[in-house]
Nucleic acid binder design. Sequence first.
RNA 1: UCCCUCGUAGCUCAAUGGUAGAGCGGGCGGCUGUUAACCGCCAGGUUACUGGUUCGAGUCCAGUCGGGGGAGCCA
Length: 470
Amino acid sequence: MLDLSVAQLFADPPSHLGKMVRLKGWVRTRRDSKAGISFIHLSDGSCFDSAQVVVANTVSNYASEIQKLTASCAVIAEGEIVASQGKGQSVEMIATSVEVVGWVEDPDTYPISPKAHSFEYLREVAHLRPRTNTFGAIGRVRHCLAMAVHRFFSERGFCWIHTPIVTGSDCEGAGQMFRVSTLDLANLPRTPEGKVDFSQDFFGKETHLTVSGQLNVETWCMALSKVYTFGPTFRAENSNTSRHLSEFWMIEPEIAFASLIEDAQLAEDLLKYMFKALLNERPSDMKFFADRIDKECITRLERLVDSPFERMDYTAGIRHLEAAIAKGHKFEYPVSWGTDLQSEHERYLTEQLVGRPVILMNYPKDIKAFYMRMNDDGKTVAAMDILAPGIGEIVGGSQREERLDMLDKRIDEMKLDRAAYWWYRDLRRYGTVPHAGFGLGFERTLIYATGMTNVRDVIPFARTPKSCDF
RNA sequence: UCCCUCGUAGCUCAAUGGUAGAGCGGGCGGCUGUUAACCGCCAGGUUACUGGUUCGAGUCCAGUCGGGGGAGCCA
């Protein structure tokens, strides 16, 4: 008896005709024919489609068990693969036995019915939502894209660097951090000055969850040349939007002997590689997203893969926005050189002006981070954001300031503490080279690819302000 | 954190300040090589919570909690 996944069955249906096989999975639907036949749709998550198992009343447990099967009962079915007499599937199993491994104890209260549920509701039953069509597809697409990321970098000679999750540096920059501590909150040790005595904490100092692997991965870039991180990242911001999670996954490559030009090209190549892999490897999942979630999602990816990204200087972007205003376009917020773009401005550029992702480059120094490389004009830094229609910023990156004197100047201007960055500054003292990198938000990439509208629905278990169930 | 909005059966949603309903799902029965099957019957409710106005509140008011959308922050 051959154990088969549903994916294996449908990968080459003719090759299984006439064979006795075993399928294991969960019941999606059961339809009875009182002529003495039941049809079970069996899903094992290995692919989008479920397999039809035909069970005749000659099977010993037909009346006692088969006819009592409801959605999500776990079963092991054995039988012969035959050409289907019905429509909707090429082959099916004629079962010789169906063993019920796990019952649904009260079908009346089973939270997932074969009908449409709202995504908001399904978040409340996140432990069961993987059993739905949408979240099964999300799980497979997420895996496919993650593997594509690793393949892309590995094929190009990058090393995956496991940067730390717990960080002792309070200088990572972006955003509020989660504290990591084993101190007794009800009985905090104090210094003579009355402050919390972190020297008694687990690591002997204040520690937090990382908000970015970038500073750490730069150190390995200065030795292995081409490196990347891919792991979870934590932000304690009180952000309540469809694009923010408190715990999310980010891909951060860093390349030595490279400028912003190569950095932008790397980001474009990565996104195209990921989406090409998705279209090739998960066609039936993508067809589902196109049918039920966003009918544009496949054509959007095909168009992206086939055409070069638009590249535009921040300064040119401002001119385009001013031209739009002159032609009568109304924005809620004013546009002027030197200010950060509002969501509505980014939307206009990527959705209306270009209609594709836009790489916006060379931003004013005052709205960007201290480590970004100063351009020769003294006003802008070699930063880039990739803006995607419907999402906004999907990539944020820059060429890094490799000149110690320039870096120190920026640290001072921003009133940061040089000493806190001692090891980061060391990289500029010992064999510094021009280098660049970026961060790609994995969940934002997923919503762009699938047409899902909320990052909470493309991660298995969402962590957001006031919400950390499961 | 700010603005807007929503919270009714397991789920999706109705209900002018006046007896809380439908579809799906579930149970039972009928019918059929079925495909989100179909037909009939039955069960299923502290209307998020607390307080208030009123003869009477799912409905109006206040507060709390939670969800969603948008903004800010960012990926």
